[in-house]
Design a binder for these strands. Structure first.
Length: 201
DNA sequence: TAGGTGATCTTG
DNA sequence: AAGATCACCTAT
């Protein structure tokens, strides 16, 4: 499509699960230091507020790290995981409701030479953006970009035709090391049979 | 399948 | 102030 940037209203409504599904097939684009890179979102996970045991803001945790999740939808939430990997999330819902969608995999489409350089690879592979830590490497995202608007030039998400719901597979989220209903709730979404997603379970 | 890595959070 | 935890990746 013609790189039409999604509007704020895409992010601010209450249905984070719907947003996580709707983001599949959209194009996530960054433009840092004159380098444009972009990829089609192939896999997401939803994190839904203070009642969601898997959410960083579970039970109202409000800290230096999590406070951006409480912002109005349409900004980025980037944090360092395991001391090694940056993970990029899209904040959703209205201000005060800490919801977000983790971007877990992309199909690289633009700026591939730049992505290869950032990944320290020589050849394009379908797995080069398959995993949340790899997505951020490809796109050059770090905690520097935490809290940035998704409506500006640096980071934006471009509209595209929705994925057929039948093509979307829902499964439990990764890394839910606790018990209770949120451990197995199917809030991970990916495009069926996409070779660009992180390994299917 | 285990180890690396460091910011963040919790406990004492 | 210190130790546990953590939405992961890579190479054995």
């Amino acid at each position: 499509m013609n790189n039409f940037t999604l509007k704020k209203s895409f992010y601010t409504h209450a249905d984070t699960l719907g947003i996580a599904r709707a983001l599949l097939g959209k194009k996530l684009m960054t433009s840092f230091e004159g380098k444009v890179t972009a990829g089609i979102i192939c896999e997401t996970e939803a994190y839904c507020g203070v009642e969601d045991r898997g959410c960083h803001a579970y039970s109202g945790r409000f800290t230096e790290r999590t406070k951006i999740m409480y912002a109005e939808g349409g900004v980025s939430y980037v944090y360092l995981c395991y001391g090694v990997h940056y993970l990029f999330n899209v904040v959703t819902h209205v201000a005060g409701q800490p919801h977000a969608v983790l971007i877990r995999a992309i199909e690289p489409t633009e700026g591939i030479p730049t992505m290869l350089e950032r990944r320290n690879l020589t050849k394009f592979t379908s797995g080069m953006g398959a995993g949340p830590g790899l997505v951020t490497q490809c796109l050059g995202l770090t905690t520097k970009h935490n809290g940035l608007s998704l409506l500006g030039q640096d980071i934006r998400i471009c509209d595209a035709a929705p994925i057929n719901p039948k093509q979307i597979v829902a499964s439990p989220r990764v890394g839910m090391n606790f018990s209770g209903p949120y451990k197995l709730i199917p809030w991970r979404f990916r495009i069926a049979d996409s070779p660009f997603t992180s390994k299917a379970k």
